[in-house]
Amino acid sequence: MPLIPPAAKIPLPIQEVLAEFFIDLLGKGAAASKTRELKLQPQTESKYVVAVYEDNYERVGAVCISELLMAAVGGAALVMAAPSILPEVVAAEKLPENLLDNYKEVVNILCSVLNTPNTPHLRLAAIHAFPDEEMGQEVWEVLDRPSNRRDFEITVEGYGGGKLSILAR
């Protein structure tokens, strides 16, 4: 039975890389700047979207937390939906299914900024619109005690933006 190598540290992107990612993906201007930490508690309802990235041994390598507005902006901008839908999402404090589906694509492709030739390959394993204990202990361990984290404020031209944090195991 082959030995499973120890989990490696995942390098996290700098703000310039993240900005370029959104510019290329969304085809419009975008900016990323550092911001304060996003703190997540269980049962925060749908105010956050949590994306979980696993390695080839199904170990959590990184987690991405997006504020509700960030997820809505990403999901809307990806398909060039009218920005006028965003205030409704904020008022309802809930991400509509179509925007969640679109944002799943955004965080799926976001994995590309976590993968390097010298670190284990990560892929999107799950996305949670309702952060809670069902995410599993391993995810909460990364959320509570990451080895590294970067917190960003993302802005997308014509849409506004929100906070997005990437935490490494």
């Binding site: 993906l25 990806l78 060039m80 589906d101 679109n102 694509e105």
Partner: peptide
């Protein structure tokens, strides 16, 4: 992904 098909077509 319908969204990605839209992006490729764009």
């Amino acid at each position: 992904s319908k969204a990605m098909r839209m992006i490729v077509i764009r």
